[in-house]
Design a protein around this nucleic acid. Structure first.
Lengths: 120, 120
DNA sequence: CCTTGCCTTGACGCCGACGTCAGGGCCTAA
DNA sequence: TTAGGCCCTGACGTCGGCGTCAAGGCAAGG
């Protein structure tokens, strides 16, 4: 499978796949002409990468998950290294949620204050 | 008041104040030597700006609040233009909270799954 | 042979709120 | 006079996940 086909099957672009490779997430072999060659398993890996990115992980955080998948595990998050990253990210998310909730409350309060002035 | 003093009183840097000016949020007068001169009221304005930035507003979003304050209102958010921005930002925050909560749930599920495997 | 369409590497652009030099002027105290 | 400390403008660096253009090679159909 060439890069264009994998990109389409994964719902992304060749540029994106080269970017993942550049950052050590995937290691395709090469054809005689220099073209990248991917086997079917890489589709699963790319999906894992994209899911994690969508969940806010950084590229470096994702490496353990990919390694875990390649080691033959059923999912990328069942390895100890992955678990550490998961816990770190969960703590981050908890923090963001707390701060965002505060902001949300302030915004609501200010909007409520305006409505009160509308009907004095 | 020179830029350094205002910066210190506002808990920020001269560079930051110049940045705000560059983006039309403050308009200090100039001394004969070209130095920026701020009156005491600007401290209040800068605090408003920093609070809004901390709440995730962009520089452009903040302009109505500053204008509202300068118009003599007790707070920057009591004007109609500010209210529109407030509603937009609240909708954004609601969206972020929803997505982050989903992520949080997925992360918890994955961590739970690992613990279950620890004690088979 | 030529066009078309895939592939390659390299490198700049984006966004936003500044940090951080670089190079130079103003003012004051010793 | 000079050293230090403030001020000025201008401009590049930061972070991340790519988009996008540039310049060129490889393969296949007409």
């Amino acid at each position: 499978m060439l890069i264009g086909e994998l990109a389409e099957r994964a719902g992304t672009s060749p540029r994106t796949l080269r970017y993942y490779e550049e950052h050590g997430l995937i290691h395709p072999s090469r054809d005689a002409n220099g073209y990248r060659q991917y086997d079917d398993g890489e589709l699963r890996v790319v999906h894992e990468i994209r899911t994690l990115l969508a969940d806010g992980f950084g590229v470096d955080d994702i490496k353990p998950f990919v390694a875990c998948l390649r080691a033959g595990n059923s999912a990328g998050h069942v390895c100890p290294d992955s678990a550490m990253v998961l816990r770190r990210r969960l703590a981050e998310v908890d923090g963001y949620l707390a701060r965002l909730t505060e902001v949300q409350q302030r915004l609501r309060d200010q909007l409520k204050e305006i409505k009160c002035q509308m009907t004095p």
